[in-house]
Design a protein around this nucleic acid. Structure first.
Length: 426
RNA sequence: GGAUGGGUGCCCGAGUUGGCCAAAGGGAGCGGACUGUAAAUCCGCCGCGUCACUGCUUCGAAGGUUCGAAUCCUUCCCCAUCCA
């Protein structure tokens, strides 16, 4: 396996991969390059539908798929309806809980909706993305047949040597037989796709290396003499933030791609809030701005990076939520943090009661400044809440229409929450 | 099935001669200051409430002993390791 790419790739696809920072290692870089240079390659990425929404942690893969599709290659997205029933032990220190088929189906549907923001599925082009559920073939497997056809190509000696299993064993964390089989199933997926969908490339996070290589080997062994039986894989880097944390975790948990779970404005804010040292990298990976432009944006360090962050946030939000959402978020952010006092894009909240205490207002559903009254009270006393720009330290302050400045009350709770509060007309 | 060791707040992890435990410490998080809507740093908070309190609910679950239990007893559930 080549770990570091040798020289210049000939295919635009791999050139993009390198330039954008999607590439980590490949089973055979030159061969993949040649194939991609020669014509359309069908490649696949697998997803465990264990959640109902993707989050930024998945985004590198999604962007990488998008890049390849733009270069004319065909993405095959596997929903691991079958494998999810087993649970991938990779990177998990504990066994995972098993999901019901109904949950898995719902999650798969959500997954497709989100991916459709980035990939074209039904445009009629020959490289339209395809989504398949591996439950369709895995659930039909018969145990003894499977063991005889597939199982004999695997030695436990080798499987145990795979890092993800090795780690579990070394750490003396139980690895169930069920999970141990995951690798075989994933390898079988690859074989299935290779045979029925002309898929010759798989990629995934670096934690998938062992599973992917197992697939390649299985394909080679299962291919009759004389027929082409070569498949490849490559891995994408696992992103961490500059301060060493896993990317995509924030105060409020994962950064979801689903607008229901994370409003576009917050998504935008997530990107703006990234570490200085990550801006250039993120611009390359998560936007499609030309590298020259990225370089120009990030050349000047220091405070000038804020412009680059804004651009990053804008582009990333536009890709996921569309132009309008990005514009709105951008405007709202500028108004909120740009020093000005323009509240026109700030969310509004219309009250039903004519009078209420500050703690109550700030914890109202819909305002959601703080999680509980207690927390709200404590924060208020520390000066976290401003009314019309003035800090108010009294949680019990009684508010009414008289506190409106103009048509509404400008409420700030903490750094992020801003609401225009309207009292009911008399 | 047997033996042993465990199950504590978002996570890790003290605490088990019963009261001083809403429970040490660390991490994460939140608020404030400083800044560039950054990092680092500093200060405060960090179960909930009708909140200056002798209030309520928490230490795997359910019972029990006691004026009083995370701490003692019983049963049960779960986890790990070893044996079969």
């Amino acid at each position: 396996m080549t770990v570091v790419p040798a020289l210049q790739p000939r295919s635009t696809a791999l050139a993009t991969f390198l330039e954008r920072g999607y590439f980590e290692q490949a089973s055979d870089f030159a061969a993949i390059d040649a194939e991609m240079h020669a014509g359309m390659v069908s490649f696949y990425v697998g997803y465990d539908p264990t959640g109902s929404s993707l989050h930024v942690g998945h985004l590198v893969q999604v962007m990488a798929m998008r890049a390849l599709q733009r270069c004319g290659h065909r993405p095959i997205v596997i929903v691991g309806g079958g494998t999810a029933m087993v649970g991938d032990p990779s990177g998990k220190s504990e066994a995972r809980k098993l999901l019901s088929t109904a949950e898995i189906e719902a999650n798969a549907a959500a997954l497709k909706r989100q991916l459709a923001q980035f990939l074209h599925f039904d445009s009629g082009a020959s490289n339209d993305a395809v989504m398949l559920n591996n439950a369709d073939w895995l659930l039909q497997l018969r145990y003894i047949d499977f063991l005889r056809e597939i199982g004999r190509h695997f030695t436990v000696n080798r499987m145990v040597a795979v890092k993800t299993y090795r780690d579990r064993l070394d750490a003396e964390i139980p690895l169930s037989f069920l999970e141990f089989n995951y690798q075989l199933l994933q390898a079988y997926d690859f074989l299935h796709l290779f045979r029925h969908h002309a898929c010759t490339l798989q990629f995934g996070g670096s934690d998938q290396w062992g599973n992917m290589v197992a697939g390649i080997e299985l394909i080679r062994r299962m291919t009759p003499e004389g027929e082409p039986g070569v498949a490849h894989c490559l891995t994408l880097p696992l992103l961490t933030t500059a301060d060493g944390r896993k990317m995509g975790k924030t105060e409020r948990g994962a950064v979801w791609l689903d607008a229901e779970r994370l409003p576009p404005f917050d998504y935008y804010q997530f990107w703006v809030g990234c570490d200085d040292r990550d801006v250039a990298k993120y611009l390359r990976i998560f936007t499609e701005l030309p590298v020259a432009e990225i370089a120009a944006l990030t050349q000047a360090g220091g405070a000038a990076l804020n412009a680059a962050k804004a651009r990053l946030a804008y582009e990333a939000t536009r890709l996921l939520h569309g132009q309008d959402a990005a514009d709105t978020a951008h405007t709202a952010a500028r108004q909120a943090f740009g020093g000005g006092n323009d509240w026109s894009a700030v969310p509004e909240h219309r009250l039903e009661q004519t009078t209420l205490r500050l703690v109550d207002l700030v914890t109202l559903p819909g305002v959601d400044g703080f999680k509980s009254r207690r927390e709200a009270k404590q924060c208020i006393e520390q000066g976290a809440v401003k009314l019309n720009g003035e800090a108010c330290l009294d949680p019990n302050r009684l508010l009414s229409a008289a506190d409106q400045s103009g048509e509404y009350l400008r409420l700030q709770a903490g750094k992020k929450t801003r609401v225009r509060v309207y009292f009911p007309p008399p």
